[in-house]
Design a protein around this nucleic acid. Sequence first.
DNA 1: CTCGCTTGCTCAATCGATGAAGCAGCATTG
DNA 2: CAATGCTGCTTCATCGATTGAGCAAGCGAG
Lengths: 339, 339
Amino acid sequence: MKRASQTKRTTIYDLAEMAGTSASAVSAVLNGNWKKRRISAQLAEKITRLAEEQGYALNMQASVLRRERSKIVGMIVPKYDNRYFGSIVEQFEAMARERGLFPIVTCTRRDPALEIEAARAMLSYQVDCLIATGATDPDRIAEICSAAGVRAVNLDLPGSRVPSVISDNFSGALELTRRVLANCEREFGEKTPLLFVGGRGTDHNTSERVRGFRTAHAETGVAVDETLVLTCGYAPEKAESAMKSLAARVETLPRGMFVNSTISLEGVMRWIRRSGHYTDQVPLLGCFDWDPFVAMLGDHIEMIRQDVPRMLDAVFEIIESGATDAKVIQIPPIVEKIG
Amino acid sequence: MKRASQTKRTTIYDLAEMAGTSASAVSAVLNGNWKKRRISAQLAEKITRLAEEQGYALNMQASVLRRERSKIVGMIVPKYDNRYFGSIVEQFEAMARERGLFPIVTCTRRDPALEIEAARAMLSYQVDCLIATGATDPDRIAEICSAAGVRAVNLDLPGSRVPSVISDNFSGALELTRRVLANCEREFGEKTPLLFVGGRGTDHNTSERVRGFRTAHAETGVAVDETLVLTCGYAPEKAESAMKSLAARVETLPRGMFVNSTISLEGVMRWIRRSGHYTDQVPLLGCFDWDPFVAMLGDHIEMIRQDVPRMLDAVFEIIESGATDAKVIQIPPIVEKIG
DNA sequence: CTCGCTTGCTCAATCGATGAAGCAGCATTG
DNA sequence: CAATGCTGCTTCATCGATTGAGCAAGCGAG
C-alpha cells in the first residue's frame, strides 16, 4: 500500500477524493477538531484509517501559513561544546515537545553577526517566540523580534528589553570564591588572593562573578590583587595565553584560581600541564561551571553547576504567562560536592 | 520608521502598495531573480530600500509552500552531552549555512520512538533531506523518508537502505587496543587481556570495535577473556553497574580497559574512584572517543577521536551528488597523542 | 505606416491547510 | 403544518510567495 516514492506527497485533497468527501472534512478530522465541526465518528474513522494507510503527513508549511500561531519556538545558543549549553538545548527541546511546540535551535558560535542572521532566519520561519541564550547583544535581538511582533526571552545573559533568566552569578561566585579561599588557607596555612580568569569583562555574568569574587575576598580580609583579574574571553586559547603572559610578568603565581567556565578551564589546565609551573603543588581551583570529567580531575577543584532545569522552567513560565516586562530572574546555582 | 509591533507583519503586498507596483515585482526583486524577470534596476533599488526601511522579512512558510525545494535540511542526533555529537551538530549547521540551507536539528535521547516521531515531524516541515545520526533503527527512518520522497543519509551508525558515513571502527579499535595492550606489557611486564566495556552489542559500531579488539589480542598472542566483554549500553549508569557486578564475580580485575565512548567512561571512572579498587595501580585505559578533560585525566588514557570534519564532508558530498545507493563510507578516526 | 522585437512590468493561478458561512435533510414542537 | 433546531456535511476565501502567461509601450527596420 506504499506510494511510489516519485509521486507527490499525499495531501488532504487526495484523501478527500479517496474517501469521497471534502478536503475540509479531512482537515477537521486530522487536526482533531472534528467533534467541533460535527463530522460523524464513522467518517472520522474512515479518514483516519485512509490517512494511515497512505502514510499521510501534514504539510506544516501550509498549516502554519494559514494559522495565526506557528507553535514553533526558536533558540539560539553560542556553542554545543560544553555540558551547560548541551543540557540547555536538550532540556529546551524536551520541554517544548511536551507542550506540543516544535523547537528549532541554532548555534551562533559567539559571532554577533551570526546571532542577528540566525534571529532573522528564525523570524522568517514564523517562530512564535525566540530564546536568546548567551547572546552578545540580546537587546538587538529583542528589538528585531519586537518589530516582528514576536516574543523574546533572554537566557544565561540578561538584556534590558525583554524578560531574562540567568544564574545568580553573584551568590554562586561568592560561595565558590569562599570555598577556594578556605581551601587555600587550610592547605597553605595562610590567606592568599586568588586569580580570576576567563569570561568577557563586559558581559553581565562575568562582572557579577567578579563582584562575588571581590566580596568573598573582602569578607575573608584578603585584598584582591587587581593584576590577577584576567577577563580575557572564554575561549581556551585566550585563557591559555592569559596564563602564559601572567607567568611572564609575575614572580610568584597565585595558589588558587577562580576559572570562569569549563571552556576557559580547558585552556588553563592545558597551560598548567604544559608550562611546567605548578609541578610541585597544584593550584586549588574553583570553576564556575560543571563537567563530569573535570570533577574527576582531582580533589582540588570546586565547581558551581548552573541549575538548567530550573532555568528552563522559568523560561517556559515566562513564555506561558505572556510576561513582557524586562525583569531578570536569577536562579541559584548548585554547589557541587568535591569527589 | 518602525512599524507598530501590534500590526501584522509586512508582506510583499504591503511593499507593492507602498512602491506603487505589483507583488510579483517585489517578489522578483527580493528573491534576486529580477534580472531574469526584467525588472529595471531603478525599481529594484526602490523596492530593496523600502523593504529594508520596513524591516520586511520573508515568510518562509509561504515561500516553501510554493517552491519545489524547501532548502531545509534536518538532522536527528542522540544526545548533546558529549564532544562528538556536539561537534557533529556544530559542523553540520555551519556547512548547511555555507550552502544556503537551513539546518534543523533535534535530539532524540536514544529513544527509538522519539526518533521516529522526530523524523516524521521533520518531514512535515518539508525537509529536503534528513541525516539520521546514531539512530537506533536507521532503516526505519530511511523507509519513512523514502515514502515521502525525501533523501536520507545515515551518520555514525550505518543502515542498509541509504548511504552511510561512519568511522572506521575496526581500524580505530584495532589501533587503540594495540596501544593499550602495549602499555600494559610495558607497565606490568606481562601480556594481559583487556576489558571491553560500553556500547550496545547489537549496534554495528560496537561489534566492529569488538572485532578490532579481538584482532589486536590475537596479533599480540593474548587470548580474549570472554567474560570481560561487557557491551552493557552506553549510559554511565550502565557502565558503572557493569563494573560493579564484574568486580563482584572475578577475583582479579583487568589491568587495562577499552572503554567504548566518553559517555561510558564517565560511569567507569566514577566506579573506579568510588569502589576503592585500583587504588594501588590505576588501570591503563583506551577510550574510543575524545574529550579534552579526559585527556587531562592522566597519562594512562589513550584516545581515539572520530574525524568529524571529514565525516561531514562526506555527508554533504553524498547529498550534493544525489547518491542513493546504500554504500558505507568509513572515515579513519584519529589517534590522539597522550599528554 | 506596420511588423517584429525588446523592455518592463502586471495578472492570476497555484502550493496545502484552515475555518467561517451556508445548505440540505431530518426530527421535534406548539 | 409551519417553525425551529440539530446533524453532517460542502463551499469558498484566505494565508504570502512564486511564476508562467500576457500585455502595453517604445523603437528600429523595411
